[in-house]
Nucleic acid binder design. Structure first.
Lengths: 253, 253
DNA sequence: TGTGGAATACCATGATTAGGGTATGGCCGA
DNA sequence: TCGGCCATACCCTAATCATGGTATTCCACA
C-alpha cells in the first residue's frame, strides 16, 4: 500500500539531497509531497491491556503499519532485526530488561529511526538515559489521555513530544549546566594572556625550552609565568595546574 | 483576596524537604493545601494586540493577579523591582533587549519565581539561552492556540510546558552529550584500576613518593605505571597525561 | 593442562627537566 | 608615582624520564 505523505524535515534531512526526494515525486506542483510507504511501527509494552489499547490506536491509524506489538525486550529486538522500522514506541520497564536497551539497539541498527518512550517512570535517571540512548519523545503514562497519533506526527516531523513533567527534568539538567558555568565564571581566577598561552603549552606537555621557542620568549621567563599560574590556581606543579584549569573550565578540552 | 492553593512541588522544594514533595500529589489529605495569595504575574510582549490578548487571558483567570503588562525590557525590570512576583511570562524579542535578560534579572531578584517564554524563536541559541537563564517553560508562538492557563498551571506545579518543536532542541542537546560520551567510550583507552589510581594522584600533583605512600606500593613501581599510562594516552609527561585524561573523560573534574 | 600475555610489583642509574628563590628592568594604566 | 604585568637572568635542589633488568599472579586460549 502506498500513500501520499508530506515530507517531514527529518526525512528530508536523512536522505542526502532534497532534490532526490522532490524529483521522485510526480504527483503535482507541490513538491512538498511524495509517495511514501506506510510508517513502520513497533510497539513494546509489557502490560497486556495497555498494549492492546495502544496497538489498536496505531493499527486503526491509516498512515502507519504496526509491524509488531511486543511484551518483552527480546521480542522487540527480534522485531527490529526482522524489519526496517521507522518508529519504536516502547515502555521502559520490561520483564527481561529496559526499553532503553531496545532504543540503543534500534539506534545501532537504524540510526534514522525514531523512538518514543511511554512510561510511568519520571525520575531523572530514566529520562536522561532514554534521551541519551536516542529517544526523541517521552510521554508519561499518567497523562490523562495520551494522544499517541499526535505524538507520532510530532516525532516524525522532527519535533519532540514530551510530557511537561518529563520536560522539567530536561530543563533542570540543562539549566544546571548554565548555572555551574556561570558560577565558575565568578570563582575563576583571571589569568593573563601570556599565562593562558603558557597554560596551553603545559597542557600539551611542552618543556621549558619548547614553550620558550613557541612563544618566542626566553627560556628563563617561562618558569616565572608557570609559577604565577600555580599561585593563581593554587597548584604546585604542572599536572595539578592542568587538572585545576580543566576543572575550572579555563581550558576547553 | 485569599485563595486556597495546592502546594506546588516548587514551593514544597523551597520550603523544606523532599518528603513533602512526594506526598503532594494533588488529592492527598488536607495538609497538602495552604492559604496562598494570588499568583503575581508579569507579562512582557512588545506586540500590542498580542499583549492585550494574553493580558486578558491572565486577567480573566481568577487565580492570578496581573501585576504588569510590559512592552519593553526596561518596563519589565521595573515591574520585577516593584513587586515580588511569582511568574514572568515574556517574549524574547523586545525593542530594547532580550527577554532572556529579563529572566536573568528575575532569577537574581527572586530565585524562587518562575519564567515562561512565549516566542516565535525556535533556534538553538535562543532556546538554550532562555533555559540556562532560568526559564522553566517555552511556548512557540506559532502554536495554533497557546493554552496559557494550562502552561501556568504546569509551571507552578513544577512541570515544564514546552512546545514539541522546542523540546526537540533540548533533546538534541542532551542526546549529543550521551553520544559524545558513548563515542569517547569506544576510543577511550582502557586503563587498569592501578593506573587509574596513579592517574588520580598525578592529577592531584603527587610526587612519586606521595603516590607510593598513598597506594602503599614501592616508589620504584610508580614510574612503571606512569609510563604505561603515558603509552596508553599517547602522552609523554604528566601534564599532557592529565590533559588527555580530562579530554577523554577518564577523570571526572 | 600447559602456556602466553597482561597486570602488578620491585630494583638501579645517568641525563634531563622542573621547581623555588631572588633580582633587575621596561611598559602601561590608575 | 605606584603597582601590576611581562620579560629576563642565575643558581641549587628535587623530581622526572628513559633505560636497563627480574618476579609473581591471574586469566584466557589452545
Amino acid at each position: 500500500m502506498i500513500r501520499v505523505w508530506p515530507i517531514s524535515p527529518r526525512q528530508a534531512c536523512l536522505t542526502n539531497k532534497r532534490s532526490t526526494l522532490a524529483d521522485s515525486d510526480e504527483t503535482g506542483p507541490e513538491d512538498n509531497f511524495m509517495v511514501t510507504p506506510l510508517l513502520k511501527v513497533v510497539l513494546t509494552e509489557d502490560d497486556g491491556p495497555v498494549r492492546e489499547r495502544l496497538a489498536r490506536i496505531v493499527h486503526e491509524w491509516p498512515e502507519a503499519e504496526l509491524c509488531a506489538a511486543c511484551a518483552t525486550l527480546e521480542e522487540t529486538q527480534a522485531a527490529i532485526e526482522a524489519d526496517d522500522i521507522d518508529l519504536l514506541i516502547t515502555d521502559l520497564k520490561l520483564p527481561d530488561g529496559s526499553g532503553i536497551e531496545a532504543i540503543r539497539f534500534l539506534a545501532r541498527r537504524r540510526s534514522e529511526a525514531e523512538a518514543i518512550v511511554i512510561s510511568v517512570l519520571a525520575d531523572e535517571r530514566s529520562v536522561l538515559a532514554a534521551i541519551e540512548a536516542g529517544a526523541s519523545g517521552y510521554l508519561l503514562k499518567d497523562a490523562d489521555s495520551i494522544d499517541l497519533i499526535e505524538a507520532i506526527r510530532d516525532v516524525m516531523a522532527g519535533r519532540s513530544p514530551i510530557s511537561s513533567r518529563i520536560a522539567r527534568v530536561l530543563v533542570r539538567r540543562l539549566s544546571e549546566n548554565g548555572n555551574t558555568a556561570a558560577e565558575n565564571e565568578g570563582a575563576r581566577p583571571a589569568l593573563t594572556e601570556r599565562e593562558m598561552d603558557i597554560l596551553w603549552g603545559i597542557a600539551k606537555g611542552f618543556t621549558y625550552g619548547e614553550l620558550a621557542d613557541s612563544l618566542a620568549i626566553s627560556r628563563q621567563t617561562v618558569p616565572v609565568h608557570i609559577r604565577n599560574i600555580y599561585r593563581k590556581l593554587q597548584a604546585s606543579n604542572r599536572s595539578e595546574a592542568v587538572f585545576e584549569a580543566a576543572r575550572l573550565g579555563l581550558i576547553r578540552l
